[in-house]
Design a protein around this nucleic acid. Structure first.
Lengths: 243, 243
DNA sequence: CTGACTGGACTGCTTTATAGACCAGTTAAG
DNA sequence: CTTAACTGGTCTATAAAGCAGTCCAGTCAG
């Protein structure tokens, strides 16, 4: 047993407070909660998440301390910062070249391998309903060309619809994880001139291939999309190093 | 946001006691601790796992209650049952056709896609040291032909050595997860006549391809290995249904 | 036999989370 | 404008989990 010795791993204790904090942060990072949105009330959250109100309050206090939310007595708590990440927030280190300890290049490579396969599988099982949802998403993306955050929300809807149309839920969940890991980096990358337009173009191309139900074409289109994301990501990193 | 609504997920609180319990169970399930083996002493475990002795004692009490270990004052605690699973133990349901909620077929498909890619990458980066370790493992496997549990321990060493020789740690970790998920099912499958011999043969073939540093050959050999495992697994399931 | 180990038991303490009550500020409907 | 129903802020009492340290009792090998 030379490489793995489970006995020596220390356990990772996390308080309920921190778990709830992370849960709220991930809602913000994924765009479910947007800038200036109201959080559910403390009492609502406590029943939703099945913890006491004190615990919810603890989590919100942490978030307030980090400047992520603005609390004010009598009124609901509001989101006032959206540049957050679950993991980096917890560890306290922000390393733009790695996600959850994995290099960005590793994530790109994994997406290239798995996501194309998942998408190809989705091409075989996409329902008419799914296709309509994808087209709706594209229409929404066209309306969000100058709002990176809103665009990313549509982008998420678009990608997740495809992932969950595949028949292998294990791989779909894995790909969703990868996609979620990348969200913060994508938000930065979306600031690049032309990045949003290019993404939209890729999405249109992917939908066209999906409607033809041609797995190979879908895989190719997805591969191109991911490679473009990778190159943008590399460019941002390069520029980040010279700044 | 039609498919995911993280707000309604209840949080999953797990006490340190339970985490340690699961950790010990997974050591038993993976064959690191075998029948009649002694557990490390409570004081050793507490320093190893960085928790208090009380917590370790709590975990052991849970295990004793489930009949997994036998404690006796003065002497060390011993393993007295090995038919355990981390997940099923916790959920209380045993479904032989699914792992962690994913269908066995999904796991096989995922392995087929990802594991072959990881193995091919490993072929390009395998060190001489790794090759020696693989050959040692094969020798050990030859000595364990009539002991399924011991064989599986060697099998694990063999597979993990290859996984971690690849350059993409994200995919390697993923594949290790898949492999670990399958351990219980493989223990059952190893009872099939000829299963161990076939596996050993596959391993020899894989090592030959690895030594040639031929990624395509390695991928092909791995693919064959996984397909064989899948077929054995299917056969066991079929038989299980007719019983 | 004996001494060094093992698990068993107990105390005191801190931290975390729960449940419930009440106060104070906000907001929108009447 | 008034008010009633919300919101967050505060406080209590209680329970549980975990930690640290100590001492007891059984086991086992030198």
């Amino acid at each position: 047993m030379p490489r793995l010795s489970p006995l020596n791993e220390t356990i990772h204790k996390q308080t309920a407070k921190e778990m709830i904090r992370d849960k709220i942060i991930s809602m913000i990072a994924s765009g479910i909660l947007q800038l200036d949105d109201e959080l559910p009330s403390e009492r609502e959250l406590s029943t939703m998440l099945a913890v006491s109100r004190e615990t919810v309050r603890g989590a919100i206090q942490l978030l307030a301390g980090e400047g992520v939310v603005q609390v004010s007595q009598g009124a609901r708590t509001r989101v006032c910062r959206v540049d957050v990440t679950v993991r980096t927030q917890r560890i306290g280190v922000t390393d733009p070249t790695s996600i959850n300890g994995y290099s960005l290049e590793a994530v790109h490579a994994a997406r290239l391998l798995v996501e194309t396969a998942v998408a190809a599988d989705a091409a075989r099982h996409l329902s008419a309903d799914d296709i309509r949802r994808l087209e709706d998403s594209i229409a929404a993306q066209e309306q969000a060309l100058d709002d990176p955050v809103r665009f990313l929300i549509c982008d998420r809807e678009f990608h997740l619809t495809i992932y969950y149309a595949s028949t292998n839920r294990l791989l779909a969940d894995f790909v969703v994880d990868l996609y979620t890991y990348m969200l913060d980096h994508r938000r930065i990358a979306m600031g690049e001139p032309g990045a949003i337009e290019k993404s939209l173009e890729d999405h249109r191309f992917i939908v066209r291939a999906l409607k033809m139900r041609n797995p190979e074409a879908v895989a190719a289109a997805f591969s191109e999309h991911i490679l473009r994301i990778r190159d943008t990501s590399r460019a941002v990193d390069e520029r980040g190093l010279t700044n």
